[in-house]
Nucleic acid binder design. Structure first.
Length: 482
RNA sequence: GUGAAUGUAGCUCAACCGGUCAGAGCACUCGGGUGUGAUCCGAGAGGUUACGGGUUCGAUCCCCGUCGUUCACCCCA
């Protein structure tokens, strides 16, 4: 009998107890943030028919599939030998599965449909820093629009829903806005700008590809590639300029709306417009974004893909989402000293996760002026309030048990356009929320326990406040009831 | 798929120009000491220097090949 050592396949990881805890620390943060932000977890198969990836994927993806077949029938084996194509492939990404799953039930699903998933993916690439052949990825997507209304406001709102979820996750892990930027761009706006530089619609894909590589390639290489693709001189001049001040003016695009919604949920310090963000994929249609930390490849990337669901046989449905891998995020946490070890790691992983059941359901009382306050408050509830004592400590760590005065919680809003409080309350009950939070004038908040349908009052003030610094802050009231 | 670097004990690394160079620290085992599981002392175990060829009187060191790892390119779903 041979005693030859069998090694793990290239680009895979053997996770011993502490390694697995480190990975769970990350996946717990993913789940926690997504749940708090009102996304529901789904899962799909880890292998799919190869056909699924042929629908939309570029040439790049097909060459990097791990293929699979049963080998049961000689005919099948023969076909694989002949065509080099097996019937199945280990999934290299989630989006086709998501589109397939959504399309299959599109008619019965809510609008918008907010889903997340975390699991293993496989790509037959040469491993390098931040990139393995098997890795975990977190996908967060918002499919469809409130009231099926694809307006600029709703697009911005849903874009920010997914971006906010990412930020809440970073915050929880102790990543700060100084260390990581979420760079935003808008493909439509860029396409318009490119048109003004003489780019024709059929040159757009080449133009975006070169834009994507702008920061990686020297100017002369960009020039030759652009010339090879027969792109117009004004575009080449734009591409090869070193003066970033001469960036295109994208004011008036959807980005304005996206940025203003970001301010409402207090994630604007993380956001930076960057007209060089393109994303390689052809299917992005509007907003695109990447989370960039210095010294790492993109930590996350995503954007709006408004005609992909249709491509997979569903009704035309706008959608937006992002993916984040565990490898680069792990590198980032290690580099920044944000990964606990030993007992601290064990404690952190042992902590209970966010309530799957919505805890707070926040609505305006019918006054239009209060509506932005809804989103600001929901963001605060999802973010949690760190206690002063922890903040003032020099050796504070994000996983400290005493970090939060008010722990981050699962908070939702209604996507119904009605201002009828009865209907909003019905929506809250329908979503199985625990507490109903009505925002009234002067930052006052009324709170109802939906389990026993009884109003809750503050002993000291009667009503509650949306102000986290107030002693009758509604978040404190909810957090201390359990 | 392309290019580069690298491979010495379980881990992190030494070994000047090819000539007592196969070593140290940590970890491990045994023992001593000690008023906690910390610190200290002694001993031990552990390597076909990734593998296979070649050059040489002699190779961890030079050359070729294979394999592995890492980094970058391609690509980024």
């Amino acid at each position: 009998m041979s005693t030859k050592k069998i090694k793990p396949p290239k680009g895979t990881r053997d996770l011993y107890p502490e390694d697995l805890l480190r990975q769970q620390y990350i996946t717990n943060a993913w789940r926690d943030a997504a749940i708090r932000c009102g996304f529901e977890e789904i899962a799909g198969p880890t292998f799919e028919t190869t056909e699924l990836y042929a629908v939309k994927s570029g040439d790049g993806i097909l060459g990097e599939l791990f293929q699979a077949f049963s080998g049961k029938s000689p005919k099948e084996v023969e076909r694989v030998k002949e065509t080099g194509q097996a019937e199945f492939a280990l999934r290299p990404e989630f989006t086709p599965t998501l589109a397939r799953m959504y399309a299959a039930r599109a008619k019965e699903l809510p609008q918008p449909c907010k889903w997340f998933t975390a699991g293993p993916y496989f790509r037959a690439e040469r491993p390098q820093r931040g990139r393995l052949r098997e890795f975990l990825q977190w996908n967060v997507d918002a499919i469809g629009m409130p009231g099926e209304d694809n307006s600029v406001e709703n697009r911005a709102r849903m874009d920010v829903e997914v971006i906010e979820c990412m930020v809440r996750m970073f915050e929880d892990l102790g990543v700060i806005a100084d260390a990581l930027a979420i760079k935003l761009n808008d493909r439509n706006a860029m396409a318009n700008y490119f048109a003004s530089l003489g780019i024709t619609p059929d040159q757009l894909e080449d133009a975006f590809n070169l834009l994507d590589r702008q920061s990686k390639l020297p100017a002369d290489a960009l020039r030759t590639q652009a010339q090879d693709a027969n792109l117009p001189e004004p575009f080449i001049a734009f591409l090869t300029q070193t003066d970033t001040a001469a960036s295109p003016n994208l004011d008036g695009s959807d980005l304005d709306s996206v940025c203003s919604v970001c301010s409402v949920v207090n994630i604007d310090p993380w956001i930076a417009r960057d007209h060089t963000i393109a994303r390689g994929l052809a299917y992005y249609t509007g907003t695109v974004f990447e989370a960039i930390a210095e010294g790492e490849r993109a930590v996350a990337g995503g954007g709006r893909y408004d005609n992909l669901i249709e491509l997979f046989g569903g009704p035309p449905t706008p959608a937006c989402g992002f993916g984040m891998g565990d490898v680069v995020l792990g590198n980032l946490l290690d580099d920044k000293g944000l990964m606990p070890t030993g007992s601290e790691l064990m404690d952190a992983v042992s902590r209970p996760q966010a309530s799957i059941r919505p805890v707070a359901f926040v609505v305006p009382n019918g006054d239009e002026d209060n509506e932005p306050l809804v989103h600001t408050l929901v963001a605060k509830l999802r973010r949690g309030i760190e206690c002063e004592q922890w903040r003032s400590r020099d050796d504070r760590k994000p996983w400290d048990a005493d970090r939060y005065a008010v722990a981050p919680m699962h908070a939702r809003v209604s996507y119904k356009s009605t201002r009828n409080l009865k209907k909003l309350r019905a929506d809250a009950v329908n979503q199985h929320a625990r507490y109903f939070v009505e925002i009234h004038a002067d930052n006052k908040v009324e709170l109802t326990d939906l389990d026993n349908r009884e109003p809750i009052t503050s002993d000291t003030h009667g009503s509650f406040s949306i102000d986290p610094n107030a002693e009758n802050y509604v978040g404190t009231a909810i957090a201390t009831r359990d």
